[in-house]
């Protein structure tokens, strides 16, 4: 009973301190100072159609590097927690032939769509994170369809290491050849709105996509090993 009162008091206090935030909230009328700069100078400086991508990969690229690092640490933690003891092996049934046949048709399409999403991240809504998640969902379908197949661990770790290393390397190249860490003008900016434009952004975002995809496939792999 005391616990319930405590919960109600906590919630009431939370509502009390944050209600003014909602009630007195004035809808945004114009862009903030920082955003104005990004929207005005972004197309010329970075050359990406999608301004969100321009900010994520170039202006705030260091944050994205940290984010990928957090994802890596979480994956490592999951692997650490799940692989300390040998669990009792569960019997795995093979899946239905509908799922198996459907996977043969869908898997290449899903992976191709994922690659499309992260290579066009600077032109359309999308990018490395979304594309990586789409690829991982394709792998999930594959796991469901053939639960007995083993992954090639080496291939996943190779993709993960090379994409992570390449990402940092491109950032360091920006430090040497251009204005700063993760500067995208190490490659020519190209024509605005084309696939090969915006300097190194398509390259960096593809590496992020591969990194996120292999990271999530690793999580799926650990979760299956029960």
């Amino acid at each position: 009973m005391g616990k319930r009162i405590f919960v109600i008091i906590t919630l009431a206090l939370f509502v009390y301190i944050s209600l003014p935030l909602v009630l007195d909230f004035i809808p945004t009328q114009q862009l903030s100072y920082v955003s104005q700069k990004y929207v005005q100078d972004g197309p010329e400086e970075v050359g990406a159609q999608n301004l969100v991508t321009a900010i994520i990969v170039t202006y705030r690229g260091l944050d994205t590097l940290g984010e990928v690092a957090v994802l890596f640490i979480a994956t490592a933690g999951i692997g650490f927690i799940l692989s300390r003891k040998k669990w009792r092996k569960r019997k795995k049934r093979s899946s239905s032939s509908i799922l198996q046949t459907g996977t043969q048709v869908l898997l290449p399409l899903i992976i191709m769509f994922g690659i499309y999403v992260f290579t066009n991240g600077h032109l359309t809504p999308g990018g490395g994170f979304q594309g990586g998640v789409i690829i991982a969902s394709g792998i999930l379908v594959y796991i469901l369809a053939s639960p007995k197949n083993k992954f090639k661990d080496f291939l996943i770790s190779l993709t993960e290491s090379i994409s992570g290393f390449g990402y940092v390397l491109l950032g360091l190249l920006g430090l040497i050849l251009a204005a700063g860490f993760l500067d995208n003008s190490i490659l020519p900016l190209g024509k605005f709105g084309r696939l090969f434009s915006a300097g190194a952004i398509p390259l960096i975002y593809s590496l992020i996509g591969l990194k996120v995809g292999s990271e999530l496939v690793n999580i799926l792999k650990y979760l299956r090993r029960d």
Binding site: S32, V52, A74, F129
Partner: peptide, 21 residues
Amino acid sequence: DPVPSVLVLTAIVIGLAVTAL
């Protein structure tokens, strides 16, 4: 404003990792 979209895109990925953990 593109900046909140960027922050949310970052937060979604971190949220996914933390939820999985």
